[in-house]
Nucleic acid binder design. Structure first.
Lengths: 221, 221
DNA sequence: ATTTGTAAATGAACAATGTTCATTTACATT
DNA sequence: AATGTAAATGAACATTGTTCATTTACAAAT
């Protein structure tokens, strides 16, 4: 009797586990299709119908796995953060915090240039934040994590005597704003229109200018 | 006979002038309705049908005065730049260029905070740039004009001995990027989610940090 | 006064969107 | 073989931007 019940339970577990796994698999299939369309054809070509078409399911099925379109976009956004944080992790090797913060900015800018649509989704579009609001989740953990990397590094700079008289959080936000501003103006095509001498160089050149400013705030022995 | 022809011509002029005026008037009526909807209800509530409804015309009529939706959005965007440049003009009174540049940033940030949707349209949304592309106009004159105000001021700072070793255009773009970054992260709700101590203060506090950095690049006598 | 020509306004129509939901299908459990 | 539930369907709804054949309005010409 006992064994019989165990068998049932185990069978049940086995089945429901498999089902859950299948469900996860289909969900990630939807996500992959969404990412493919998003990266290949851009945001406006990424409709629920086209995603469903891509994996040969009906539009309604998508809503069995995702609450709504914002839910899907949030998922793509999260994947983007995994990708970005993976690229940033390499910089743990750089021991000097001042060198590291400069490298961080460079990697960040490269990420934005290489993945403009994804960057836009991660840092500009309303969809991911609307999704968080809709599930009553106030914290944007992806953003918090990335911002912490920056804050930690700047804190280490301060401990080494840099940025005297500055406030950690506000300065960190300043640095983030600078690189985000460069990235955004580039992506939204506001650089191209402004009649610069070397538009394609401006992203990195303006970042160099900022680094110069940063270094002027260094410790004086 | 001559007088008769003149009469006709004069009459014609009078009529076509009046017609042209009426046409201008209806176009600006459409624009006003679009602005109203845009500012009151946001971008997603600003559809051509709702604009047409607002002024009690049919949807098709709108297309007689505007090429497409991007055309309307570009017009709203241009009005935004007139508003912004009007606010910036007050600062011609500030004689010290270093003080002026700091004030410029403050006014710019205030504008962004007070008119978030409009700012988004002016500096982030693709619509205005898509419109320029569609009419084969490469230069973004509204942006060029505003950027020139900044460049001129920074140039004056340099003439006074500030920012030694910096490059005018790149540094100007750096400053623009910083305030734009702060404004954008604020508008796209990326500040709120990042768990700051005083989120509502961060816009101005991080700007103060940047000003501190700027001042460290000042002339040393 | 009547016809004519053109500019302006209409609103139906099209294709596409996000989303919902009653219905059907598939399939493990009884 | 019957049952119950999870999963998948696809039609339907309300919107969107945009087009276009048709109608309306009205000044000009006869």
């Amino acid at each position: 009797m006992f064994i019989y019940i165990c068998k049932i339970l185990l069978d049940n577990m086995g089945v429901s586990e498999r089902k859950a796994k299948e469900k996860e698999e289909l969900k990630s299939l939807i996500l992959k299709a969404a990412q493919k369309l998003f990266l290949e054809k851009g945001i406006e070509q990424t409709s629920i119908r086209k995603i469903a078409n891509e994996i040969e399911y009906s539009p309604g099925t998508v809503y069995f796995y995702y609450k709504d379109k914002n839910d899907i976009l949030y998922d793509i956004h999260s994947q983007g953060f995994r990708k970005l944080s993976h690229e940033l992790k390499v910089l743990f090797n750089v021991s000097d915090p001042m060198e590291r913060i400069i490298a961080l900015g460079r990697v960040y800018l490269n990420f934005a240039i290489e993945n403009p649509d994804l960057y836009d989704l991660m840092f500009n579009m309303k969809a991911p934040m609307d999704f968080l609001n809709s599930i009553h989740q106030q914290d944007w953990n992806e953003g918090i994590g990335t911002f912490d990397v920056l804050k930690t590094t700047i804190n280490q700079c301060m401990e080494k005597g840099y940025f005297k008289g500055h406030e950690l959080e506000a300065l960190s936000f300043s640095v983030w704003s600078l690189v985000h501003g460069i990235a955004s103006l580039n992506i939204s095509q506001r650089i191209r229109g402004v009649n610069l001498k070397e538009p394609e160089m401006m992203v990195m050149k303006s970042y160099e200018e900022f680094i110069m400013l940063l270094y002027k705030g260094k410790k004086i022995y």
